[in-house]
Nucleic acid binder design. Sequence first.
DNA 1: TAGACGTGGGG
DNA 2: TCCCCAAGTCT
Length: 338
Amino acid sequence: MPRRTGPRARAAGVRPDPYRVWLSEIMLQQTTVAAVKSYFTAFTERWPTVTAPASARDEDVMAAWAGLGYYARARNLLKCARVVAGDYGGQFPQDHATLLTLPGVGRYTAAAVAAIAFDDPQVVVDGNVERVMARLHDEHTPLPQAKPLLTDYAAALTPPTRPGDYAQAVMDLGATICTPKRPACGLCPRRAPCAAWAAGTMAELPKKAPKKRKPTRHGIAYLARRVDGAWLLERRPDKGLLGGMLGWPGSDWGEDPAEAPPIRAEWRALGEEARHTFTHFHLRLTVKTALVPMERAPDRGDFIEAPDFSPADLPTVMRKAFDLAQGALEQAALGWSA
DNA sequence: TAGACGTGGGG
DNA sequence: TCCCCAAGTCT
């Protein structure tokens, strides 16, 4: 993965594979290197070139993305791979403006791919770069208002040569030394010209608009296990939260959700709720389980045979519900509860 | 354009 | 146990 191996891992002048650069930048959006690493390895081993995910089944790619979050990235990854495979002969466009037209590729990613994969000196501005620029210039204007100014600062520093190495270097600096909290200024190669260091304000920059509190929503998830071990699951619609992902059929998520069992059964609620926090709300999920006979047909969802089901294919909130149910089953089997 | 959109780790 | 935070894009 380019960002982790770093510029020094490559011989000067050798351009990294645009597909791998694009894939890693998509995965790294709002996500740490540590979280991305195993996913990047799994993706590139299974789908080594952009034509591979382009011809993959949606469900396989969504399952491989499960747990990484922001699932619109995976849906757009599929769209983008198919555009590149279909409209560009399997070769990523090199032009920044054309990159920007690809699904899931915004200003940051287009600039990063152009700079890192194609040696084009585009101005790469992510959260790390914003922080580094705010500190170098002791800029106290809060984000996102300060973004244009910080981009100007970044542009003034972007070199005409080796822009990819430069971009990765600044982002690495932000990730490892010029960190959000307790920056390691003693190790910083740009301490001398840093205005925030001179002013002693580095730890409070960049300023940001205050965050809003998250409301708590409630919901019910229904985990039906057929006597042969199959599980009742449902593919979520492409739009919206967890779009395109597999999940347990459930109620709406809100103040006081109504029952919405997907199949007739004797439902029993677990003693403990599954708790999960999304970007903009907390969720407390009541988990209900039932054992259903072979011949009974569900009103919603489809039974997936036990060998075809892996909880790793589920988004985290759904996997938490599964883990709770499993734990309850094991406790019951061991006679720990009635 | 502000809000929607995940998750895991640190305090 | 929470609360807060972090490597964007789309609508």
